[in-house]
Amino acid sequence: MIKSKHLLGIKELSAKEIYHILDTASGFKDVLKRDIKKVPPLRGKSVVSLFFEPSTRTKTSFALAAKRLSADFVNFSVSTSSVIKGETIQDTALTIQSLGADFMIVRHASSGVPHLLSNILEMSVINAGDGANEHPTQALLDLFTILAHKKRIEGLTVSIIGDIAHSRVAKSNIYALTKLGANVRVICPPTLMPAEIEKLGVDVFHSTDKGVKNCDVVMTLRLQLERQSKGFLPSLEEYFNLYGLTSERLKLAKDDAIVMHPGPMNRGVEIESAVADGPQSVILEQVTNGIAVRMAVLYLLAGVKK
């Protein structure tokens, strides 16, 4: 059962809690298939999003999740708020709490901001991405999507290709997959590989061909294009040649391997268009599953004794 009223990261969750969230999400997935895609459990509750970094899909996904649980959803717009007038993030958060909100969905460029806020707030804090630390709901929806196709997580080989050093998606997925017993491989240029990443229980590959060989799941990550200007990469073409997921490379994986991407995609940089749109791609399913998983998170956190 879920112990904390906050969702700060996968690191803080047990395998049992993760499975409980995923089981609950499959109930919501069924709700989303009906004509009436709305259920009443969070009636009268309100959910506020506080995003200090741009996001469309995560914010929209949370908004739909909240509304389909009958909660009210309000977006606190940082760019037009008093934050730019110099208010501290704690004061902003306490103000939102005083407005009577029950959940705060936070995204910030600095790691640890949701943790900081959870220490001063009574309301539930959900991390929607903090710096290079974690993006827990993305990892949960990835697990949900893998389970839907593979029926298990334990024993699967999952290859994550991309900017491991700067990716909170990679971090959350590594925690989640290793907790549930998958073999995780990480593949990326040496300049984008964090030191001592092996300590998280993953196998490091610098060759994409070797890293993808015989895996069950290939997860490609978005390459932030400014990495090149900061000198981590010689050129985007070279990145594609060495680390891009092409149809040729995908053939090295198992025949029934699935291809995942958290979005937004850079076609021709980390993934070839033919792969992104190909039969093994589950990229759009990930987006659909995101709503069910976020409904499960909001719903279960609401049931945790305050």
């Binding site: 059962m1 609950t24 499959s26 109930g27 919501f28 069924d30 719903y299 049931g303």
Partner: peptide, 9 residues
């Protein structure tokens, strides 16, 4: 007291 466990519909 106990948390909800969702079953099949």
């Amino acid at each position: 007291e106990e948390q909800p466990v969702v079953k099949r519909t």
